[in-house]
């Protein structure tokens, strides 16, 4: 399955023409960086092969190294779901609040949370892990965190298949709204994870203790995201609810994913747009910070 894209000859496309165009005007200058660094889209496009190869490398290595292979991507969310259900639902008595069985309620939130936290973690370490590349070869550094966000999607889709199985088991069928908005919710998660990941990646290069603070940051973040509890539990704390909606786009994504896919509570359009907007803002902040520090990564990485 993951035997490598290069064996697939149908995928071959002719980019000779583009190559020549690029070549005819390859004159470029290297000069001290200005203050405002914009994203060089044509350059990113030229390096798409490298992006694909690095993503393929990460996926290939991940499923090659573990004996369990794909099974690992299945076991992790299921085990977490069983343990969390036991602790938070059976022992602590947390309920879904709208009559949804707790395991599927939890799993839907966890699906998005695991993608988000995994991407943030991997993206923030991508430059340090690939320091040998960064120090020896030029390429748009943005490729490295972007690769992390892409490879995380494989695990996400595997976990999504499990959700589909659970929905059949529990007798849920997704509504139209849920299916149509799901890509938007996923996009929101990707942008939010990338924004935070890019920011952390660039400060991780400079400050090496960020790596140690990160697990703490991620686990704290999980408790201020409605993964194991419904947002409705915050009804008595309106300020907390507002802060969560406006500062934590993932909370909106999770709530709406549950509403859309499981259909037990109402889909909140306003929250969806807020989440999307805030994610875009995070992405822009992350990108700008990354771009402004990017050129010095090789000196300090």
């Amino acid at each position: 399955m993951l035997n490598g894209w290069h064996c697939d000859d149908n995928q071959e496309y002719d980019n000779t023409a583009l190559y020549w165009i690029v070549n005819l005007k390859t004159e470029f200058t290297i000069s001290p960086p200005g203050r405002l660094a914009r994203i060089n889209w044509p350059e990113l496009w030229r390096y798409r092969d490298l992006f694909l190869v690095l993503a393929w490398r990460d996926i290939s290595v991940r499923y090659k190294q573990t004996v369990l292979g794909v099974l690992w991507a299945i076991l992790q969310p299921i085990t977490t779901m069983i343990i969390f259900t036991f602790i938070f639902n059976r022992m602590a008595g947390i309920q879904s609040g709208d009559g949804t069985p707790y395991p599927i309620f939890l799993y839907t939130g966890q699906l998005i949370w695991l993608y988000f936290s995994g991407t943030v973690t991997k993206a923030s370490q991508s430059l340090v892990v690939n320091a040998s590349l960064v120090q020896k070869i030029y390429f748009p550094r943005l490729i490295l965190p972007a690769t992390s966000a892409t490879t995380g999607l494989i695990d996400f889709f595997i976990a999504l298949i499990i959700l589909a199985g659970m929905m059949i088991w529990y007798g849920f069928s997704p509504g139209w709204i849920g299916l149509l908005t799901f890509p938007i919710l996923l996009l929101t998660s990707i942008m939010c994870a990338m924004g935070i990941g890019l920011f952390l990646a660039s400060i991780n290069v400079k400050y090496r203790d960020v790596r140690h603070a990160l697990p703490f940051f991620i686990s704290t973040l999980m408790y201020i995201t409605p993964v194991i509890y419904p947002v409705s539990m915050l009804d008595n704390y309106p300020w907390a609810k507002i802060a969560m909606t406006w500062l934590n786009p993932i909370s909106g994504v999770i709530t709406n994913a549950r509403a859309g896919l499981l259909g037990k509570s109402e889909f909140d359009w306003q929250v969806m747009w807020i989440s999307l907007l805030v994610s875009i803002v995070y992405l822009i902040i992350g990108l700008r910070h990354f771009r402004s520090t990017e050129r010095y990564f090789a000196d300090i990485a």
Partner: peptide
């Protein structure tokens, strides 16, 4: 020259891949 690190001053013009 390889664009791994930027110069502090001055300029390089390259006319080729």
């Amino acid at each position: 020259l390889s664009q791994i690190t930027p110069p502090t001053e001055g300029k390089i013009t390259m006319r080729g891949r």
